[in-house]
Amino acid sequence: MASQTDNPYPRIVNPQPLIDLFSSDDLMRSVWNASDLPAMWAHQLKARLISELRAVDPAWALLVDGFCTRHDPPIQTFGELFACPTPPRLVLDLTKRYAKHHLQTKTQLPIPIAGAVYVLSMLVALAKCGESVTSHSEDQVLAQAQELSRQEWIDERTRSWLEG
């Protein structure tokens, strides 16, 4: 009688991905991982501002729509907003609120991505509009920008915004 070493029937041999999924509500812990962050951040920068803001509050999308379409050149994505030399302050303010909403209400937007949007919105408002969209002091915003800049998953273009 030989020992059975192989089960001939297909089976789940590594239940860990399923267990992880039900052990935490944070998908960044259970499904996504650090190696996904660079692609996720690139995706976030390409995402349409209007669609993302509408998912949080349709009124925000209405407000932003006018500013973004009238802007020269038009601003459609998060990346275009942060790269714009003259971004509308209101749009940065609502973008910061969008990020804060995701950070505070534990939605599915991964926390590092929401955090990066949050910091960039505050920093760009200070640097390019000369106005604050936060109660944080300028030093606090700069410190958060430096911290974000040190993250390995941050791309060079974003790093230039953070350090510029």
Partner: peptide, 18 residues
């Protein structure tokens, strides 16, 4: 990868994929 999946499956943002 995340990039390949999100593009092929048509998710407009990390929020939508998540």
């Amino acid at each position: 990868s995340y990039a390949e999946l999100s593009e092929r499956l048509g998710f407009e943002s990390p929020r939508a994929a998540s």
